[in-house]
């Protein structure tokens, strides 16, 4: 994880230059950082990481806008944490994490939904049981696997720099599915979010919609785990949506802004990570936090007058 890669000799045109360390002179630290970032983003793995971040940011923001209003934020968190169980199960069975994660996330989400509907316990308490126990079992299973090449750190915090072409294709397809689904059913989704009995009385099949949304959310979380890690994935769902909520008046504007802020957070985070040589997942979440804090301050000065 992180960006501790050696960049020497990887640039395409080689004008004779001093090594990077020399660029970090006190005279022009900003400029040297900037050129360094530009150079880094010419590397294919950085471009893939950036693409992956943007795709995850868009999907997380889009579905996140509904997730937080339907009070499913903690559900996405539990889904993320439990992915560790999926990964270790996959490793134990000798399968690659990527191929296990999507089906595991969907099955897990449906199972948890069933459990929530069956028992009369508080949602947050039940989700706590689900995610802490799946973390525990996941870690125990990992001890039987032996050495996982990525290490537990990359499972917990993700490794966005290891995003491959295939991951990008999966994410792109998923983003298209999300946009089409939310776009075509936008009014039903709004009504369901606003008042479920009213939605049913208007003829919306509420439980089918609920299941479809949860499956989609599980797929997005499952597809993004590898890059973002099980601990931080829910930030992609929750933080941009909350920032967008603070800045929006209309529902449609809110949904779109949430997706845009998700992507913006990813871009800023990748640049931040490249500049300061920081692990990329945490860098993106930090930038999302920065956007959220700006959103808290902005409406008081500007939007309240509108």
């Amino acid at each position: 994880m992180g960006l501790r890669c050696t960049v020497y000799g990887t640039r395409p045109e080689p004008p004779p230059r001093k090594p990077y360390t020399v660029h970090r002179t006190p005279l022009s630290p900003m400029l040297s950082d900037f050129t360094r970032v530009i150079e880094l983003f010419q590397l294919p793995f950085m471009q893939r990481a950036l693409m992956g971040g943007i795709l995850t940011g868009l999907m997380g923001g889009l579905l996140g806008s509904f997730t937080i209003l339907r009070q499913l934020s903690f559900f996405s968190d539990a889904l993320g944490h439990s992915a560790l169980l999926g990964i270790s199960l996959g490793l134990l069975l000798g399968m690659s994490p990527s191929s296990v994660l999507l089906p595991f996330a969907v099955l897990f989400a449906l199972g948890v939904t069933y459990l929530l509907e069956r028992t009369r316990l508080w949602t947050d308490a039940l989700l706590n049981i689900v995610y802490s126990s799946s973390l525990a079992i996941g870690v125990i299973l990992l001890t039987f696997v032996g050495q996982y090449k990525g290490g537990i750190n990359s499972i917990l915090f993700g490794d966005i720099l290891a995003v491959r072409q295939g991951d990008l294709i999966v994410s792109t397809v998923l983003l298209v599915v999300c946009v089409v689904f939310v776009g075509l059913t936008l009014r039903s989704q709004i009504l369901l979010t606003l008042h479920e009995p009213l939605a049913i009385a208007s003829g919306i099949a509420a439980s089918a919609h609920r299941t479809a949304f949860i499956v989609l959310l599980a797929l997005v979380v499952g597809a993004s785990i590898k890059a973002i890690g099980v601990l931080l994935i829910s930030a992609f769902v929750v933080i941009p949506a909350c920032a967008a909520r603070l800045l929006s008046r209309t529902f449609t504007g809110y949904v779109m802004l949430s997706a845009v802020l998700g992507a913006l957070g990813a871009v800023l985070g990748m640049v931040f990570s490249a500049m300061l040589n920081l692990p990329s997942g945490p860098a993106i979440v930090t930038m999302q936090l920065a956007i959220f804090l700006v959103a808290i301050v902005v409406p008081r000065t500007r939007l309240t007058a509108v």
């Binding site: 209003l69 709004i190 979010t193 606003l194 909520r245 929006s248 008046r249 209309t250 529902f251 449609t252 504007g253 809110y254």
Partner: peptide, 9 residues
């Protein structure tokens, strides 16, 4: 806390 205008509703 749901952002929606009267027109949208």
């Amino acid at each position: 806390r749901i952002p929606i205008t009267v027109n949208e509703l």
